[in-house]
Write a protein that binds this DNA or RNA. Structure first.
Length: 256
DNA sequence: ATGGTCGGTAACCGA
């Protein structure tokens, strides 16, 4: 089972990159964030022609998540029970007995802002929901744009980002809270190159200078963490013309 | 030097 996550920052603009990447990598599952596409204009036909089933939860202008899968996706959930939120940020589906939870965690804007409060509240409610999901599904993968750099080694300049958004202690505690559900940060199960990141600001030639943060993650439940064979960032799409500001992250699991 | 670049959408907001 090869499963990946990619914040595409507009699926309409990035569709050629996504189709190219699917053809090259042939993942079993690809979770997308920031599709910025209403469901009525989701490019289902193009993706199905590429051999993928599509499930999506979008809205106008902002947010939007989708899961592409080679096998059919069952039991979709688009809302956290008990959280009445118009923002389309979560999508859970079951593929081949694997529960896949696609998250687009709020950015939070600035520490202490209203959006920051929403982010922390949202993360708390997601944690409660994922606790219930983990009881129901022994094979659980939680992946997406978490908008949290878990550790200083996930930040190109930890001093400059000290207690800044994406790096603040409450955000990192919320991330550790998810790990406390028995979820493993699959990227850190393996030796990795130093200065591995998944997002680089469009400004200041951030990618060329590798001024990045690792904020996109693939978490695996206790039942499958030992089956994870590799987790890596694919920086190649970030170097293309007109790229997303995020790179895909891929994890491969031994099956059965 | 406190900027800078994208995407969506139509003057700015969000990231």
């Amino acid at each position: 089972m090869k499963i990946a996550t990619w914040n595409v920052n507009s699926l309409k603009v990035r569709l050629p990159h996504v189709l190219q990447w699917l053809a090259q990598e042939q993942p079993d599952v690809l979770a997308l964030q920031e599709t910025k596409t209403e469901d009525t204009s989701f490019p289902a036909t193009d993706l199905e022609a590429a051999g993928y089933r599509v499930v999506y939860s979008g809205q106008k202008t902002y947010n939007g998540v989708a899961v592409l899968s080679r096998q059919p996706a069952a039991d979709p959930v688009t809302d956290i029970p008990g959280l009445d939120d118009p923002q389309r940020r979560i999508l859970a589906v079951t593929v081949d007995g694997w529960r896949v939870v696609d998250l687009y965690v709020p950015n939070g804007s600035e520490v202490g802002s209203e959006k920051y409060g929403y982010k922390l509240d949202w993360l708390g409610k997601v944690r409660d929901w994922l606790h219930a999901e983990s009881q129901k599904h022994p094979r659980l993968v939680v992946l997406g744009d978490f908008n949290i750099a878990p550790d200083d080694r996930d930040v190109y300049d930890p001093k400059a980002w000290h207690e800044k958004i994406l790096c603040s202690t409450p955000e990192r505690e919320a991330f550790r809270g998810l790990l406390g559900l028995g979820l493993s940060d699959t990227f850190r199960q393996f030796e990795q190159p130093e200065k591995s990141y998944t997002w680089w600001d469009y400004r200041m030639n951030g990618f060329k200078r590798n001024l990045g943060l690792r904020i996109d993650h693939i978490l695996a439940s206790e039942g499958i963490r030992q089956d994870c064979r590799v987790c890596r960032v694919d920086t190649a799409p970030r170097a293309l013309e007109r790229p997303s500001d995020h790179a895909p992250v891929v994890a491969e699991f031994r099956c059965g």
